[in-house]
């Protein structure tokens, strides 16, 4: 286990091995997302109360789920970089932040586009919406602190601490709809209960959720590999890789 950790923690080893994953992640994304979009937009039945507007759910819900789990992954990378001073973990945290910020922004904007016709407003300062906005600020804060620190790895520590402390926001987002009176409805899915919708409605959603995870890992890996290339540009192994190519 420690040997495995040691090997994968080296940028060179990671770079050499991780490239093989790219086609699978790209394939998963390009297969599931178009399927989910066509299925959700065209074939899933309309909702008895919301009509066709509920189709926004097929982009909103995956974005909201991914926003929270990508934050957890970014914070985990930050934690590893704090404890083991691993360059790769620092790079992973830095590259996850902008993707997570965009995903959170999409969750907020698609939610607003759903809220306007259904609730009657784009935005309301209820606990769910506000805590999700804070998630966006946390992503932006981690990104800004990390960028300000420059390429040195020690500079990333403040950003990593913020990322880890910001984890507290995740249970608040999750339980906000149960703890307080909010405009946002409670969750339609839970581990213990049946989904509050029939299979022909949640199946395309499942395709989208798996698809956006595939997309996230794909983009994250692409960015991380580019970050490694840029950070390691002076090292022999990366120059040799490219010397043969050019």
């Amino acid at each position: 286990m420690w040997r495995w950790f040691h090997e994968w923690g080296s940028p060179r080893y990671f770079y050499a091995r991780s490239g093989r994953l790219l086609p699978y992640l790209a394939g998963l994304t390009l297969l599931l997302i178009p399927t989910g979009i066509v299925w959700g937009l065209l074939y899933a039945p309309a909702d008895y109360q919301q009509g066709h507007s509920y189709r926004i759910m097929y982009v909103h819900v995956p974005a909201a789920i991914l926003a929270q789990s990508s934050y957890a992954m970014m914070a985990a990378a930050g934690m590893v970089s704090l404890i083991w001073r691993l360059k790769l973990a620092d790079a992973a945290m830095q590259t996850a932040a902008p993707i997570g910020a965009w995903v959170t922004a999409i969750a907020l904007i698609t939610g607003a586009l759903w809220g306007k016709p259904m609730w009657g407003t784009y935005w309301v300062w209820d606990a769910r919406l506000t805590s999700t906005l804070i998630l966006l600020f946390l992503f932006a804060g981690v990104l800004a602190l990390r960028q300000a620190a420059g390429p040195s790895q020690s500079g990333g520590r403040a950003a990593a601490v913020l990322a880890v402390v910001g984890l507290i926001n995740l249970p608040i987002i999750k339980f906000s709809v149960d703890w307080w009176f909010t405009l946002h409805q409670p969750a339609s899915f839970s581990v213990t209960e049946k989904p509050a919708m029939p299979i022909e409605m949640w199946a395309p959603l499942l395709a989208m959720v798996i698809g956006v995870y595939g997309w996230f890992f794909w983009v994250w890996l692409l960015r991380l590999r580019q970050e490694i290339r840029e950070r390691e540009v002076r090292s022999e192994w990366i120059r040799q890789r490219y010397q043969n190519e050019f």
Binding site: I33, G51, S53, R55, I56, V59, A105, L113, P117
Partner: peptide, 19 residues
């Protein structure tokens, strides 16, 4: 889109554009 075209296609368009 049952009268919700701007909202629905706006949401999907934005998501795909960012993706």
């Amino acid at each position: 889109m049952g009268g919700y075209a701007a909202y629905v296609f706006g949401a999907y368009g934005l998501t795909v554009a960012v993706g």
